[in-house]
């Protein structure tokens, strides 16, 4: 039986039943911008960066099942324009000051903004007041950069089985909280060995004393763009097979 396919920006992409558009595209080396999606976990559908046009309808690729013969638009000027606006909204919602952020160069938000030619945050900043939590001996939480993707929430709940994180409040006041009456990470059973300690796409959950151990210039997205890396990883995986 021949493999089912769909069209992504005019190219045929094979998929298996149950795969999302995002998963199938990724396996084929096609980059669909994403923030709340992580290849190791199921889709969440909140950041909307992965919005594609599937058979003419806007849908989040990370939570939309691939279907046979569907036509999907991905990197069109119209969609990238919407994505750029979404990025800008995220930048002004928090306090993103890259020059003093130790995640700079390793940050998925920043790398995606580079890929999408975001030249400025455009909107007026909200400058929220979000104090950092330095209580934990090994980990610093800098909430200023949280994009509410809930990766840490999901991983701590579903993989670590600890439920360290949750989102509190609603609307623009929504924010990350930890599982302690004091509100301090030190008063939870969080540990550096938790999978959740490694999953934050931006610079919120930071290992102390490690900050600049990899110098700027040699960081994850310094040499190649996030999109190129997806293509290269798929090619490498193909070679192994």
């Amino acid at each position: 039986m021949s493999q089912d396919t769909f069209l992504l920006d005019g190219e045929e992409i094979p998929f298996t039943r149950g795969q999302t558009i995002m998963e199938a595209a990724r396996a084929a080396g096609k980059f669909i911008p994403h923030l709340c999606w992580h290849p190791d976990f199921t889709g969440h559908g909140s950041c909307k960066l992965c919005t594609v046009k599937a058979n003419g309808h806007l849908n989040a690729a990370c939570v939309t099942a691939a279907r046979k013969d569907m036509t999907v638009e991905n990197r069109t000027p119209e969609l990238d324009d919407k994505r750029r606006t979404l990025l800008q909204l995220l930048f002004v919602e928090g306090n993103h000051f890259c020059p003093s952020c130790e995640k700079s160069g390793n940050c998925v938000l920043q790398a995606t903004a580079y890929e999408l030619d975001m030249m400025s945050p455009h909107f007026d900043h909200f400058f929220p007041d979000r104090p950092v939590d330095a209580s934990h001996p090994e980990v610093l939480l800098d909430f200023n950069r949280c994009i509410l993707c809930e990766l840490c929430v999901r991983v701590s709940r579903d993989i670590d089985h600890k439920n360290i994180f949750a989102l509190s409040g609603r609307g623009i006041a929504k924010h990350l909280v930890v599982n302690a009456e004091s509100g301090r990470l030190a008063d939870t059973d969080f540990s550096l060995d938790d999978k959740a300690a490694q999953v934050c796409p931006v610079g919120v959950i930071l290992t102390k004393k490690k900050g600049f151990s990899v110098p700027i210039g040699q960081r994850r997205f310094d040499a190649t763009s996030i999109a190129t890396q997806v293509t290269e990883a798929a090619a490498a995986a193909q070679e192994e097979v």
Binding site: K48, L90, V92, E93, G169, G171, I172
Partner: peptide
């Protein structure tokens, strides 16, 4: 809408606040 947005998705969470402003 800014008051009632659940805050789950980016366009509505931040968008409603931008619009109100």
């Amino acid at each position: 809408f800014a008051h009632e947005s659940c805050g789950f998705c980016t366009p509505c969470r931040v968008g409603t606040a931008v619009n109100a402003r």
